[in-house]
Amino acid sequence: MSYLSELRAVWGTAPLLSVGVSVLVQDDHGRVLLQRRGDDGLWGILGGGLEPGEDFLTAAHRELYEESGLACSNLTLLSLEEGLVSGPEFYHRYPNGDEIYLVGMRAHGTLPAEALNDAAPDDSGETLELAWFALDKLPPLPSNINRAGLNVLRVRAGLPPLPLNPFPAPPPAADHMRRLREVVGTRPLFAPGANVIVADGEGHLLLLQHGSTGRWTLPGGGLAPGESLTDCAQRELRGATGLSAAHLEPLRMYAGAECRFTRLNGDVIDNISVLYRARGVTGTPTLPPGEIPGTAWFARNELPGEDEFSGAVGWAMMREWADSCPPDRFPS
């Protein structure tokens, strides 16, 4: 049973954050590979949900093989500008009533047209048919997940983007992860979210002190169903520091086995997090009472060590970003 199926068994059909990957494969004529799905009989791009501990590229290769029997050696993740998926427009309701908000990435690769002759989808019934389609002669695409993904290729080809279908307003921003944890126990859960780099341009990085541990952390937090990752980063930055950013530049998506964290109570978390860099920061620092006792600006040679930082993923974000910057200062 898949990760999402196991959650559905205890959560029902109510909206879930579904972490997944879309697989865009083109042939040597620029046509895109689509599948006719078994659940609704309609055409769409290949792809599916991640399993706990899996990264997006590994999932892309697995989903492509399961749904087509094909392997694509040059399959790669798109840049965050083209590949990042999140927001209210990525709502989808399946024929059985299950509701999701997709969060994830897109992968892209190429295969020769004749590769389809060797296609052999698995026996799950998920794929009824496979075919190549020209980008200007696509079949009806009811899902915004498919429309938005194919718009990446259409824009590249100089074609106008397909209009997105209307979508419902997201549910109230309640504590989704807490409620989900109450019904699933300690089992692994994907925790999509965002973290933010705030630097002053003089060689100093802003870090927050975690209220319960006293350790240092980057501004950031978890995604609400229907929220975009950029909006999440802006909300968390403002809520934790009172600051706002004129622009948030996505730097890297963190996911996979190295992003797993086990809390002291046994809860297992698979972090899925985008690291943003804040540009044009304004506002007066204001800390939420009780949650964050303090902030500090750290010079490069004074950055906290891993044992002083709250969470291995956040520490890796900080170190990788700092190590990639010029030696004399952090870019603001």
Rank of each mutant, 00 (worst) to 15 (best):
Y3D: 11
S5R: 14
V10H: 06
T13S: 11
P15H: 04
D28H: 13
G30D: 04
L33T: 04
R36E: 09
R36G: 05
D39R: 07
G41Y: 05
G53M: 02
G53Q: 02
F56R: 04
R62T: 08
E67I: 01
N74Q: 05
S79T: 09
S79V: 02
L84P: 00
P95G: 06
P95T: 06
N96F: 15
D98E: 08
Y101M: 03
L102G: 02
A107M: 10
L111W: 14
L111F: 12
E114M: 15
N117T: 10
T127S: 02
T127L: 03
L130I: 11
K137L: 15
N144H: 07
R147S: 00
G158K: 07
L159N: 06
L162I: 13
D175E: 10
M177S: 13
M177Q: 14
R178K: 12
R178E: 06
L180G: 07
E182L: 12
E182W: 06
L189G: 03
P192R: 01
G193H: 02
N195P: 02
I197E: 01
A199D: 06
D200N: 10
G201V: 05
G201C: 13
L205F: 10
L206C: 10
L208V: 02
R215F: 00
R215Y: 00
W216H: 01
L218W: 00
A224H: 03
A233D: 07
L237Q: 01
R238F: 08
G239Y: 05
G239L: 11
T241F: 03
L251M: 15
A255V: 09
A257W: 12
R260W: 06
D270R: 05
N271R: 14
I272D: 02
I272K: 01
R279S: 15
T282P: 10
E291G: 03
T295L: 12
A296G: 15
W297A: 09
A299D: 13
R300Q: 11
G305W: 14
D307C: 07
E308A: 04
G314H: 00
W315D: 00
A316T: 06
